[in-house]
């Protein structure tokens, strides 16, 4: 009897899958494991301990960098999500017209341009503005993060809008909802999971960024990733593992929250 082709039944499928999973997760497992190392270095494992977590929590620089990271990610992801939502509505709730594809390309441009190019460009651009205005605050980092987060927020929101029946918005208009009310009471509640997904993605991308942050930041504006990069250049202690493990925990939490919130909705 002829069976339908299934990639799962091909020889070697399981082996390749296992290798891939090991390559992906083994280093992370090892990293987390060594975070509990009681020794002073990563070269030997001498027993379980939470001392490096305690050390990380006592480290003023780590705490400052973490707070800075969350601030930047929070503001940038919010701004990017609002911009992305507006862009997604503008590009899906319209009849196709000449130039629409060009707009898609423009919105998604940060995905295509090498990050280092954007970083150098922003460094030069912001340097000028810093001289003119004398302002040296977090605004530059937030602006830069917002810019490269927009496409990440845009993609899930647009996908959600494209799958949404646009007759619902017509029905709302038919039932005396002004364009704003139709958006407020019909589009937005139905779009919410997409907006949330976009926000989470933007948040994580911002939290994780090294290249652009490294170029744009002023002195004393280290985010957690750039701080860790700076530390690793000197000595590597299990403190880095502990911080990474906490970072990992945070991103797992974000993903879980996302799934839980999404599951409750229709």
């Amino acid at each position: 009897m002829a069976r339908r082709f299934s990639v799962q039944r091909q020889t070697g499928f399981a082996t390749i899958a296992i290798i891939c999973f090991f390559a992906l997760y083994l280093p992370i497992v090892v990293l987390v494991f060594y975070a509990f190392n009681s020794a002073d270095s990563l070269s030997s494992f001498q027993g379980l301990s939470l001392r490096w977590f305690a050390r990380a929590f006592e480290n003023r620089q780590v705490i400052d960098a973490s707070i800075r990271s969350l601030q930047i990610a929070g503001v940038a992801a919010t701004a990017a999500t609002i911009a992305a939502t507006m862009a997604a509505i503008a590009t899906t709730r319209t009849e196709p017209y000449r130039g629409l594809t060009l707009k898609y390309a423009f919105i998604n441009q940060p995905l295509m341009v090498p990050e280092i190019v954007t970083a150098v460009a922003l460094l030069i651009f912001f340097a000028r503005i810093k001289i003119w205005t004398g302002y040296n605050g977090l605004g530059y980092l937030i602006a830069a993060h917002t810019a490269f987060c927009v496409p990440f927020a845009y993609l899930p929101i647009r996908a959600r809008l494209e799958n949404m029946d646009s007759t619902l918005e017509k029905a709302a208009a038919d039932l005396y909802a002004t364009p704003w009310n139709a958006f407020r009471y019909v589009t937005l509640p139905l779009l919410w999971p997409g907006i949330l997904a976009g926000f989470m993605l933007a948040f994580v991308i911002s939290l994780d960024d090294v290249v652009i942050t490294e170029f744009v930041k002023s002195a004393g504006q280290d985010t957690l990733p750039t701080y860790m990069l700076g530390q690793i250049r000197r000595t590597i202690t299990p403190e880095m593992n502990a911080i990474s493990a906490l970072f990992l925990l945070l991103s797992i939490c974000v993903v879980i929250v996302f799934f839980v919130v999404n599951r409750k909705r229709v």
């Binding site: 029946d165 017509k170 029905a171 709302a172 038919d174 005396y176 019909v186 229709v266």
Partner: peptide, 19 residues
Amino acid sequence: PPFKRPINTVFQSYALFPH
């Protein structure tokens, strides 16, 4: 615009608000 017309529609797909 449709929201100013005292006319209502029953859509072919019903278009009920799922939320």
